[in-house]
Nucleic acid binder design. Structure first.
Lengths: 241, 241
DNA sequence: AGTGAACGTGTAGCTTATACACAATTTAAA
DNA sequence: TTTAAATTGTGTATAAGCTACACGTTCACT
């Protein structure tokens, strides 16, 4: 055939019904941070082929639903949260990636504050898994997870997105520990602090940590004003170099 | 419905044929470099809705075809080239993005040496357009082009991919002009040269430019050995900072 | 009162990025 | 054959950013 896209859908239907024997899905890699570990929200697969394997949260895209709406819907259904950070990463379309048939999936990752959805978690077969303890997942979901983690790693040094994983007020130790979990490295404490103060991403809220068995650190919140509205892009660009 | 992905395709077909009333396509942003300008290969749309508008090169994904195979096929059909640089960028899935029906498209960009496919070009309605002279395209293709260009811009400083746009031997002026075209900026000549020599991406082939109306510059080729095989990833990582 | 644990702070050395000018080579035109 | 136009090839000084590194302070716990 020539260029199928130049025909109408009606023509295609009569030409070859096979075009429609495929489905499109979204899969969400939902990251959380708890207990000094980066975690991801998974569900037990109930497909026979992957009995007892864990898988990412996903669903088919509805015929009248935008692609990004589908991923927001999955998030909302599973965590009860909307207004979360969500970013598209990659589309996986190997013919045999899904045992039930041709399913092409678009992968997204999301950053949420793990404390915000304790309630909805109880009603599900969902569990948080430490990212670096996951060696296999159902389908090609391990590959999807790895791809999303890499994307996250490359974003956090230049874009202020990790704050979506933290409570509103946090200490510099928590922030550094989060960066270390995502990158899988250790960072120098003094240089880390200096860098963040210079970047002006933080606001001192004049409070101290509570209930820590050592000298409490100061608490900060994310300086969201610097990244709001029209200024957002300019400010981000300015920090790229 | 619950999680449609947990059902089989057979179940889905009986549930709701609407799931299959959509199609998946690929669209390729094929970049070339000629006459000191970054260009993109476009085709006249023959859809009535976009009469006389230009559009990217794309096609539907076949039911038994991997997603990346589909984009390679489009490239091969349109340029006669295989073994080209091709990278997935983003999937566009708004319900009404295509007037003929629900078509979700995955965008890719490709870098080719514009001289390599003169022949196949003659048999088509294809034309090279300077990227910065394009203000509208059919469908949402302008948005797709912009997204791919941004991706290209953010890649070229850390990954040695622009050489796909150049002939085997090139002068430093050509290389700098290419970077300037992609970034839309002017660069300092001395610093540009110093940076490239330090990066060790180039090999001096001990030849001079021919037929230039001024003092000829030395010719170089890309030091591909440094990025081949298993070493590839390590070397690239080492240059990220 | 003493111990353990993490907090808060500054500097020196190194690497990287930027700004910037002039003599040499080739072609083309007078 | 001289001259003008265009572009090549080259180095240094300054600024900015990254890295490595140590010690006194504060709080909880016993």
């Amino acid at each position: 055939m020539g260029n199928a896209l130049q025909k109408t859908i009606q023509q295609l239907k009569s030409d070859n019904r096979e075009f429609f024997h495929m489905a499109l899905s979204v899969d969400c890699v939902i990251f959380g941070f708890d207990d000094n570990e980066l975690k991801v929200l998974l569900i037990k697969s109930d497909l026979e082929e992957f009995h007892d394997e864990w898988s990412l949260l996903g669903d088919l895209v509805m015929p009248n639903e935008n692609l990004d709406s589908a991923s927001y819907r999955v998030l909302k259904d599973r965590t009860g949260l909307d207004d979360v950070f969500l970013e598209q990463v990659y589309t996986f379309g190997d013919v045999n990636r899904h045992p039930a048939g041709r399913v092409i999936t678009t992968a997204w990752y999301s950053l949420i504050n793990i404390k915000d959805h304790q309630l909805s978690l109880a009603h599900n077969e969902l569990h948080w898994h430490p990212v670096n303890e996951i060696s296999t997942l159902a389908f090609d979901h391990k590959k999807i997870l790895d791809t999303c983690l890499k994307q996250l790693q490359s974003k956090i040094d230049e874009h202020p997105i990790v704050f979506n994983l933290l409570p509103e007020k946090f200490s510099l130790r928590e922030l550094q520990s989060l960066y270390e979990s995502i990158h899988g490295t250790k960072l120098d404490r003094r240089n880390f602090r200096k860098k963040f103060f210079l970047m002006d991403w933080l606001i001192d809220v004049n409070e101290l940590e509570q209930d820590v068995p050592h000298r409490p650190g100061k608490l900060y919140r994310f300086n969201a004003d610097r990244f709001s509205d029209g200024k957002k892009e300019n400010v981000q660009e300015a920090q790229l170099h």
